[in-house]
Simulated scan of single mutants.
Amino acid sequence: MATKLLRVGWHREHFLSPLLQLVAADAGKTIELVECPGGTGEMQVKLKNNEIDVCIALTDALIAGLANGQTSYKLCGRYIASPLRWAIITGKDSKYNSVDDIKGTTFGISRQGSGSQVMASVLALEQGWTGEEQPKFKIEGQFVALRNSVNNGDTSVFLWEWFTTKPHVDSGEVRFIGHVNTPWPCWQIASRNGSDDAAVAAFLASLEPYVNKFDSEESRAGPAVDYVTETFGQQRADVVEWLGSVKWESRLAEISENTLSATLHGLEQAGVIKKESDRDVSAFINTNVARIVE
């Protein structure tokens, strides 16, 4: 009888280079990659529909989903320790040239509850926008649709990871008018409730050495730059800049309770989730796989 493959949801981003290196070495023995162009929102849907077993996705969207009542998954590990830089992106010929210009306008988002929506709310909080100044949202779907929406005027801007989007700026398709950083470590790992916990734990154990090697000084000095440049078609200078800003977690099968609580507080402040004084954060964690740490 063939071994059931662990279905891993992912989005085509350079942050997941260690995952791709593991999958190449695994050669289809234990892991099946399931690409999710719609990002974290699509992964959440696929977890609910039993189309994937585990995913590496955005911290804020995963935690917001859990806080807002999603029951199909729990956090089972951590992945990136540093913040994510979200670009504020507008059309190539749009009238918007600064963050102040987009106050009270319609932002494109990929899905309800997605990182693109969460970070728009964080931006509004940071800018002090209230009432009619706050963004309105229009669901557009994946990147191409979002790009088209800012160019045809259906939306003013959308938010997407800076370095993933930069090639589209270099080619003149869209423009950057600013950025906003996440106030929390930006990537976590989640597993579907009902998935094989032993298989998920084995996956994290097998991924960890690839993460640690990719994050090493030796790798950053050349091999990691080469890999991202060749795999994702990024400009070498952009890859070097990105690697200077990102830090992976060294132990994946852990969840920081402090990080989880701080993220929940930030999401409450941004109005993404309701404020609760007695929230049990441990209920968000698959403790059969992950150890809770400070």
Rank of each mutant, 00 (worst) to 15 (best):
139 I>D: 05
117 Q>H: 10
172 G>R: 09
177 I>N: 04
172 G>N: 09
183 P>A: 03
195 S>L: 07
156 S>M: 09
146 L>D: 01
185 P>I: 01
166 K>Y: 01
172 G>I: 04
118 V>H: 06
133 E>G: 15
171 S>A: 14
118 V>P: 08
193 N>Q: 07
188 Q>R: 14
127 Q>N: 05
168 H>K: 11
190 A>R: 07
151 N>V: 03
183 P>C: 06
117 Q>W: 12
117 Q>G: 14
180 V>K: 07
138 K>Q: 14
117 Q>C: 11
197 D>S: 15
130 T>R: 06
196 D>H: 10
198 A>K: 12
174 V>K: 05
154 D>I: 05
195 S>Q: 01
170 D>V: 03
190 A>Q: 02
168 H>R: 08
136 K>R: 14
190 A>T: 05
181 N>S: 12
122 V>W: 12
194 G>R: 05
149 S>E: 00
160 W>D: 15
120 A>P: 02
162 W>L: 03
160 W>T: 03
171 S>E: 10
169 V>D: 00
157 V>P: 00
172 G>L: 08
150 V>M: 05
141 G>A: 11
193 N>L: 12
152 N>P: 02
174 V>P: 01
186 C>D: 06
173 E>G: 02
192 R>A: 08
133 E>D: 14
186 C>L: 03
201 A>V: 01
145 A>P: 00
163 F>Q: 04
141 G>C: 04
185 P>H: 04
135 P>M: 07
173 E>T: 09
185 P>A: 13
123 L>W: 01
127 Q>W: 07
121 S>R: 15
134 Q>L: 14
138 K>N: 09
118 V>I: 15
176 F>E: 00
200 V>T: 11
179 H>E: 11
148 N>F: 02
179 H>N: 11
184 W>C: 11
178 G>F: 01
129 W>K: 10
154 D>N: 11
138 K>S: 15
167 P>E: 03
141 G>Q: 03
161 E>D: 14
171 S>T: 11
156 S>R: 01
186 C>G: 14
124 A>W: 09
171 S>G: 02
180 V>A: 07
181 N>V: 08
137 F>L: 07
142 Q>M: 08
123 L>D: 01
145 A>T: 08
196 D>G: 10
158 F>Q: 04
134 Q>A: 07
144 V>G: 14
177 I>G: 00
187 W>D: 08
201 A>E: 00
121 S>E: 15
158 F>I: 02
159 L>S: 09
139 I>C: 12
141 G>F: 02
141 G>V: 06
193 N>W: 02
166 K>G: 00
197 D>Y: 04
177 I>A: 02
132 E>I: 08
155 T>E: 00
119 M>F: 12
201 A>H: 06
139 I>T: 14
160 W>A: 13
159 L>N: 08
201 A>D: 08
119 M>L: 15
144 V>N: 15
124 A>K: 10
197 D>N: 14
162 W>T: 01
121 S>H: 10
172 G>Y: 04
141 G>P: 04
146 L>M: 13
125 L>D: 12
183 P>Q: 09
144 V>I: 13
150 V>G: 03
